[in-house]
Design a protein around this nucleic acid. Structure first.
Lengths: 136, 136
DNA sequence: CAGAATCCTAATCGATACTG
DNA sequence: CAGTATCGATTAGGATTCTG
């Protein structure tokens, strides 16, 4: 990755940002992060934590997702090595999606974030309300 | 929140997805998640972990961000209670942004995710390469 | 059933210019 | 300096149709 900032030794994204470098946008990780944190990426990853599922299962489970977005997001995640796709060559096509070991890990991180937000929603909404009415 | 699924007792997003409900899209947490995982939201949160900073500092530090997006994203995060904005009423305007306690927490989760990706990029790229050439 | 292809709309983003 | 306003370009995303 980042050829031009390769000199910086042990740099996580966080490190880079703290230092002031931050042209990490030309780094592949930006792309991966985008897939993972995309609207449907988050939901699909968490949904797939429940185990192997078929295309239509996911479509039903995730809800408002269109076929197009489902297919596209699955392809992103597959290309990133997070999702494994297994197509059974039977007459009515049967394809199963599951998380790879790598995918299980990211999905875990995403789930932590999503759950934190869900859990802290009351506090968040409270802070929002307090700001609106309170300290004008 | 979610009036219609209020019956479900202790439901995290993950729980909802695993069960098959998942119409969490009409839930405020979807919005918060969107702000937090947005392209610039991620970067700003992590950047702000370094401490209080001014508008132009953030603009410089985050890099490719436009003024518009910086202002907008900061407003989102402020409205969600993650960022505190302090404007000093001096002649050349001086405004400082920092994370609230709540913001420090989410930023931490986001940082974990971002760092995981950064750290595992080699493995991700390897998986990608292997799939392209290998098991046709 | 799984998905590719097409078309189309609405939202997003970025650059520029302007204001207090 | 710290924004807001506006506009054009890009993109995400949805609905529909078609195929193996």
């Amino acid at each position: 990755m980042n050829d031009r900032i390769a000199a910086t030794p042990p740099a996580t994204l966080a490190e880079l940002l703290r230092r002031g470098n931050v042209f990490a946008e030309q780094c592949p990780s930006r792309e991966v992060l985008k897939h993972v944190t995309s609207r449907w990426g988050v939901l699909l990853l968490v949904a797939l934590l429940a185990g192997t599922q078929r295309f239509s299962d996911l479509r039903r489970k995730v809800g408002g997702i269109s076929e197009k977005m489902l297919a596209q997001t699955l392809q992103w995640l597959e290309a990133d090595g997070f999702v494994a796709r297994i197509a059974h060559p039977v007459v009515p096509p049967h394809v199963e999606y599951s998380l790879t070991p790598l995918g299980i890990e990211v999905a875990g991180k995403v789930e932590v974030l999503a759950d934190w937000i869900e859990f802290n929603l009351p506090a968040i909404m409270a802070a929002r309300a307090a700001r609106e009415s309170g300290p004008d």
